[in-house]
């Protein structure tokens, strides 16, 4: 049984300009100890998808119109708020992009981490303090006893993200959702944080759902990739098959449009591959494939009927008429 099984998830936002169909019929599953990367450009629905798992989207205007999210055999969408709160932070936890705004500026670091232990593991103050200092050591924060008393503004960006990881992994969750965990960080700090995340998840047997726009990060950390475009999954597969043999014209374009280190020294300077146009606005009503207007291989049928997901082999699927 997969740890997490998302079936046909659709999320709408009802705005004054009409309904924005942010996520349209997304299905995927995640096994124990697996690391899946979700990639896509801004506005493709990757954040909304994972936030719906913990129902962290504002409702209204948001609305989960369809779908089922099974976690450990339980439908998360059917749970009441109280049960859901028990799961948030203990079985499933989340790391966000902005380490400054996701920590509360008026509470100490120690206070915010030990809260997790007090709420979910019913520890008393002394035991929670001990456990907190222990986890601060695990995320390699120097002099944890001193840091325990400090406030978020006294820490650097990388340190704050370590604190976020400490909070997220405090209860050794089964699933960690990391939404662009290193986007706001510097290169060398990004390498530290990714390394730390992988190490700890290995230690605690945690599965990771990693959202990023950086294809390089996915290639280096995940085992499976989900490529999203305009609210839909357009291609999924193992990391090696997606990066070596991408099928969907969008995935191919995305990989080709990235400048790669070493290419210029080897082959000389060539213009980068471009995907023409821009991502469609999500309140448009496009029949057929949403990528068709930007696709250089689009056919008549692409503009009329939406393509279905088709398995090329057991672990690689693509939604494109070229392969149907």
């Amino acid at each position: 049984m997969p740890l997490l099984d998302v079936k046909n998830l659709s999320v709408n936002f009802n705005t004054l300009e009409g309904t924005v169909r942010a996520v349209q019929g997304v299905s995927f599953s995640l096994k124990k100890r697996e690391i899946i990367g979700i990639v896509g450009e801004s506005g493709c629905g990757k954040s909304v998808t994972v936030r719906s798992i913990l129902r962290l989207i504002p409702m209204p205007p948001g609305e989960i119109s369809e779908g089922r999210i099974m976690f450990n055999g339980e439908n998360l969408l059917a749970l009441d708020q109280k049960r859901l709160r028990g799961i948030r932070g203990s079985n499933i936890s989340m790391i966000f992009q902005e380490p400054m705004t996701s920590l509360n500026p008026v509470f100490t670091i120690g206070n915010q981490i030990s809260e997790t232990f007090k709420v979910h593991q019913k520890m008393n103050k002394q035991r929670a303090r001990k456990a907190t200092i222990n986890i601060l050591e695990k995320v390699s924060i120097p002099s944890p006893e001193k840091r325990f008393e400090e406030y978020p503004h006294q820490l650097s960006g990388g340190m704050r993200q370590r604190v976020m990881i400490a909070i997220a992994l405090a209860c050794q969750p089964k699933l960690l959702i990391a939404d662009e965990p290193t986007t706001a960080l510097d290169m060398t700090v990004q390498a530290q944080i990714l390394d730390l995340m992988l190490q700890l998840s290995d230690q605690f047997d945690t599965s990771i759902l990693l959202i990023t726009h950086d294809l390089g990060i996915v290639a280096q950390t995940a085992s499976k990739v989900i490529v999203m475009y305009a609210g839909k999954i357009i291609e999924t597969g193992s990391v090696s098959s997606i990066f070596k043999h991408p099928f969907h014209p969008y995935t191919i374009g995305l990989i080709k449009s990235l400048p790669r280190m070493g290419l210029r020294s080897q082959y000389g300077k060539k213009p980068l591959h471009e995907i023409p146009g821009i991502v469609p606005s999500m309140n448009e009503n496009i029949s057929g494939c949403w990528f068709a207007p930007r696709c250089d291989q689009s056919m008549d049928i692409c503009r009329k009927v939406a393509p279905l997901q088709k398995y090329i082999d057991s672990d690689h699927s693509v939604s494109c008429w070229l392969f149907n």
Binding site: T188, Q190, A191, L194, D214, G216, S240, I255, R260, M261
Partner: peptide
Amino acid sequence: SAVPVIDPDTEGKTIILKGDV
């Protein structure tokens, strides 16, 4: 070395620096 490469076969020999700037 900290740049994530999009070739999954490239074994990352990332040099992890200690601490912050």
